[in-house]
């Protein structure tokens, strides 16, 4: 019974932790929009803008990745079951 509760709560927690994906989504969309604006204003700097945007996107992604890591720990390497 306890095990079932822990498993169910872990599954719900894994789902909830992926709410963290909203933030990077908004942030990366904003960054990509600004990059598109910048390319429109200055098409000759396309290479620099693209690499800067990719770098910024990948750094902005890290909070979403933290959520993903928490979800994967809860699903595949659950530390809570060992505490029963």
């Amino acid at each position: 019974m306890e095990r079932a509760i822990v498993l169910a709560a872990s599954a719900i927690g894994a789902g909830l932790s992926m709410i963290a994906g909203i933030g990077p989504g908004i942030g990366q969309g904003y960054a990509a929009g600004k990059a598109a604006e910048a390319v429109g204003r200055q098409p000759e700097a396309k290479g620099d803008i693209t690499s800067t945007m990719l770098f910024g996107c990948a750094v902005a992604e890290s909070t979403g990745i933290y959520g993903l890591v928490v979800a994967m720990i809860l699903l595949f390497a659950n530390p809570l079951i060992g505490k029963l």
């Binding site: 990948a58 750094v59 992604e61 890290s62 990745i65 933290y66 993903l68 890591v69 994967m72």
Partner: peptide, 16 residues
């Protein structure tokens, strides 16, 4: 920690 999780999370998400 953040460098590790960023790289690991991206590749492991691909695997999953």
């Amino acid at each position: 920690v953040s460098m590790t999780f960023r790289h690991f999370g991206n590749i492991a998400a691909g695997v999953v």
